[in-house]
Amino acid sequence: MIAKRIVPCLDIKDGRTVKGTNFLDLRDAGDPIELAKRYADQGADELVFLDITATLEKRKTLVTLVEKIGRELDIPFTVGGGIRTLDLVDELLQNGADKVSINSAAIKNPNLITEISEKYGCQCLVVAVDGNKIGDEWKVFTRGGTHNTGIEMFGWVEQVVGLGAGEILFTSMNKDGTKSGFEIEALNKMSQQIQVPIIASGGAGNIEHFVQLFQNTGVTAGLAASIFHFREVDIPELKQELQLNKISIRI
């Protein structure tokens, strides 16, 4: 039986992890590879690396990092953050990334979704959607959740799947950083609406939140960053608890 996936996310700047971690025994808490290997050893099912470098050096450092990650890591990983061109997608996939995630570029140039999907297959393309609930309506936001595109979110999700997205990474801006639980209602609606895997992000604060996520929605993966970095949630413990709750999980 297929397992639900637990996905730690690492924010990367200039080839280093940012926001720090609470793994006191790491030799170098800023080294993304050391942290990634730690997560893989603990049972993370895959990893997401989100590059927030905004300099001209971005491409070079990111490709170098992806190459290193691929050498060291024997579980799948996705790379995202400011990917706008098919050229960069080529380089990242050829250097060992399993999937790329695009966000703003998908909105500016939806054709990129089709281009990537046709060239490499939809399974290597994650479209990240940052949603924010304004009044009763969900809108798509970009630029780290600061810019309202005015696009209605559920319509957009349907559209990107039609264009060739193989997976959706949905982040609730309302929930992000609150540690008050995943956005169950919207995630449930989305998982009934589309037939590709959904990675839920935003709001995870404790183990119970993951149990609720998998019991109440059809999403196939839960993503979090700081609760793993700061050891507020321990991956083996989380997985044991999910198993106790009869959720299919790889242990």
Binding site: M1, G166, V196, P197
Partner: peptide, 27 residues
């Protein structure tokens, strides 16, 4: 089912050298 299948699944194998030393129903 959700398509594509993305993730870890269990595998039920017959006796074969390829699966030597693996647990039952490996992921």
């Amino acid at each position: 089912v959700i398509v594509p299948q993305i993730g870890w699944n269990t595998t039920q194998y017959k006796e074969n050298s390829l699966f030597k030393g693996l647990d039952e129903n490996p992921w």
